[in-house]
Computed example of a mutant assay.
Amino acid sequence: MRTALVTAVAGAVVAFLLGLLTFGVQATVHPHDVPLAVVAPPPIAERVRAADSAEVDIRSVDAAEARTLLADKEVYGVLEISPGQATIRLNPAVNPSGTQVAQQVLTGVAQGAGLPVKTETLAVTAAERTAPLAASALLWVGGMVAGLLFVVLKGRRFRLLSALTTSVLVVGAVIGLLAWWGVTFGAAAITFMFAVAVSFALLQAGLFKHLGIRAMGVLGLLYLMAPAVAGQVPELLNPAYKAVLWSWTPFRFSTEGLRSLMYDGSISTEWWVFGGIALVGLVLLLAGKEAQPDRPDGVVDVGVDQADGLPRPERQHTA
């Protein structure tokens, strides 16, 4: 009776927490202070600024500053208004969720001014929008499965070699899969993917070494909750999720970094993040002893030889 009650409560608690940390992110999405830029003559700029609200933060700037802000991903879209025409400029390296909100809001502003609208942006396929987050998740899963099998198959030596080999093969598999979908990467993006794969694999291998199969409790939870926020922009997230999940998840850095490099952008913070993760993983991998697996019969071996004449554990049976 007691066991039945405890397991039932545990199941309900886990379901509640996973729902809170995963589906709750999607359920509470709402734009707030989405940064946008508008280039317009002063009278029109004043009217546009009047459309500012809690959902958007509209800046009135000149054309040069607007394009700089867009290239640096400081804004999600730019509306340039000239006599008789409104042009929306978008950057494909910006998170698609933010771009979608920007296009909707800026289109409404232009139509409110009675102007025809055209949009200028590099054409992006559905596969290209999906690729950065998909690649990040697959790199994590590949390293996690390899680390788990290493434990299940009772591997003892060459764990570091396994992690590095896994990184190379998983990156190759991801590149091949995405190429099948019509997505190709330059040398910088492939190098970054390899750095992400190595850092993930080293961290996972280090945790599996010290925790054994119990590491899945940590790694699996990270996989379940992190992608839910990595594909969002902070201005769409509930502030609590932004602080608790989005601010630190490595999936966010890998997704944003890969998206930037896909469109000839540059990254800096992301290299430091994954360099730090790789260093932590390497320290875990090289330090301490292997986690000792439980024996199949549930008896913990304490290293006492049977020749000492000590009584056998109750659950140990002779042949």
Rank of each mutant, 00 (worst) to 15 (best):
R295Q: 15
G143M: 10
H317Y: 05
L115G: 12
R157W: 07
V273D: 09
K289R: 11
G172V: 11
W272H: 13
A189Y: 03
Q104D: 15
V229E: 02
V34G: 01
M144P: 01
G220V: 06
W248I: 05
A179K: 13
L177A: 12
G142W: 06
A64F: 01
R129D: 11
R157G: 03
V9P: 01
G265I: 04
T68C: 02
L115R: 06
L138N: 03
F16S: 14
T191F: 06
I277R: 04
A64R: 14
L245A: 03
L79Q: 05
A10S: 09
V145S: 04
V9E: 10
V229Q: 11
D264A: 14
M144D: 10
S97K: 11
D294G: 11
V168R: 03
A188S: 14
Y263W: 12
V170M: 11
D308T: 12
L285Y: 02
T255W: 04
T3G: 05
L17T: 15
R59V: 00
L310R: 08
A113S: 12
L310C: 00
A230C: 05
P293Y: 04
A86R: 01
P41R: 14
V13K: 00
V283W: 11
A146M: 07
R157I: 03
Q103A: 14
I88G: 00
A173K: 04
N91K: 03
R47E: 12
T87A: 04
V244R: 02
T28A: 13
G231C: 03
Y263H: 14
V61I: 09
I81F: 03
K118S: 09
R252D: 05
A50F: 08
S82R: 14
E74V: 00
Q100L: 09
Q316W: 09
V117Y: 06
A113E: 13
T249H: 01
I44A: 13
P43A: 12
L36P: 00
V198F: 06
V29I: 15
A37H: 01
V29S: 14
V29L: 12
E290P: 00
T121N: 10
V13T: 13
Q232V: 02
F253N: 14
A102T: 00
Q104E: 14
V101P: 02
A307H: 08
A8C: 12
A86E: 08
T121E: 15
A201S: 15
R259A: 02
F192G: 05
V124D: 15
V218T: 09
A243K: 07
A201Y: 00
T28C: 02
S254W: 04
